[in-house]
């Protein structure tokens, strides 16, 4: 009885203490947010940085590029993140938001490339597609005799006689994913633009028609977990999957990738932008936090070092398509001088 009462009182006391003590604490860990595509690379750098130096290992949150920008631009102060990763460039509107909230000085780092691949099991028939054919297979609406109609193509061979006579079944990321954004923009819209019928579309129509994926079951949204898509492809030879290059590289003995416009996705082809569905990856540094949060400058140097992003760098081992040497040297200079990003650059 008495012990129960005492226990009760202790709980109540502990509760009230934990409740009131909420100081705005100084932070000694770098806080990084942003793209889930950059996350696997940034985490490796963070971990190496943590073991190599006396600083604490930075904390990384995978919030998506847009979510990261929002958090990053919320303001200056230890409750806001120091660095944000992005699988696309900062938008002018995001830059304005940053300025409005007092995040004036930002430095941009372009850290390499990533390709989006269309892969299948090694036992399946490999596709050789043009972007145009890809759009005709996956677009929500396609032109038939000059009219935009709901995509009637059931089999790959309906799109082009050279393609396999098999039903179109493609698994890919959901609309919330940055990979899907890039896929819509770089693959589908580009394929759409290659069609003569696309010339007559105004800007709004272009966005709704050229960047829409069909929803009749031929394109299956598989969630953010790319491992699931890989598992599915291995079990089902009639299925094709859309995901980032690093997942292809991790499963290179079981998967093959379709060629797009005649290009096979290799590290070289993606780095040189010869592979059509390639995008750049970025991170943005809040300069007001450099010198306040310990280790910021050192972390940026580590990220842009030859050990990380060089020809034999450890980021290459985890699937990053590293920038060529001259760009890397530029990055290193940038890490030292930290030039400000201007709105003109983003326009």
């Amino acid at each position: 009885m008495n012990t129960l009462k005492k226990a009760f009182a202790t709980f109540a006391l502990a509760g009230s203490v934990a409740g009131v003590s909420a100081p705005a604490m100084a932070r000694d860990t770098i806080s990084i947010v942003g793209s889930s595509t950059v996350y696997p690379f940034a985490t490796v750098v963070a971990e190496r940085f943590g073991t190599k130096t006396d600083f604490r290992t930075p904390k990384l949150e995978s919030t998506g590029s847009g979510g990261g920008m929002k958090l990053f631009c919320q303001g200056i102060g230890t409750q806001h993140p120091d660095i944000t990763n992005a699988s696309r460039r900062m938008k002018a509107s995001e830059f304005d938001l940053c300025q409005k909230n007092g995040v004036a000085d930002i430095t941009e780092f372009r850290i390499g490339s990533d390709g989006i691949v269309i892969a299948s099991s090694k036992e399946a028939e490999n596709l050789e597609l043009t972007l145009e054919q890809l759009f005709l297979a996956l677009g929500a609406k396609v032109p038939v005799n000059g009219e935009w109609v709901v995509n009637p193509n059931k089999n790959w061979s309906d799109v082009d006689a050279s393609l396999p006579n098999k039903p179109i079944r493609v698994m890919g990321p959901p609309p919330t994913s940055g990979t899907r954004d890039s896929f819509n923009e770089l693959a589908l819209a580009a394929g759409c633009d290659a069609l003569p019928e696309a010339k007559g579309l105004n800007e709004d129509q272009h966005k709704t028609i050229c960047e829409s994926v069909r929803e009749d079951g031929a394109f299956i949204e598989a969630g953010e977990n790319d491992n699931l898509i890989v598992q599915k492809l291995i079990g089902d030879t009639g299925m094709y999957g859309v995901f980032g290059y690093s997942f292809l590289e991790e499963n290179v003995d079981r998967l093959q990738a379709a060629t797009l416009n005649g290009m096979t996705p290799t590290a070289e082809a993606i780095a040189s932008d010869d592979y059509p569905v390639a995008r750049s990856l970025f991170f943005y540094v809040k300069k007001a936090h450099v010198g306040v949060i310990p280790g910021m400058q050192d972390f940026v140097s580590e990220f842009t070092s030859n050990a990380a992003m060089g020809r034999n760098g450890y980021l290459k081992d985890v699937g990053l398509i590293v920038p060529p040497r001259d760009q890397l040297m530029n990055l290193m200079d940038k890490a030292e001088t930290m030039p400000n990003l201007t709105k003109e650059e983003l326009m």
């Binding site: 604490m25 963070a46 990384l60």
Partner: peptide
Amino acid sequence: IGMVAFIVDVPNGFFDS
């Protein structure tokens, strides 16, 4: 609230990531 994060160091307090 940011607890879905890559955190290497074992936390040693209530205000540690």
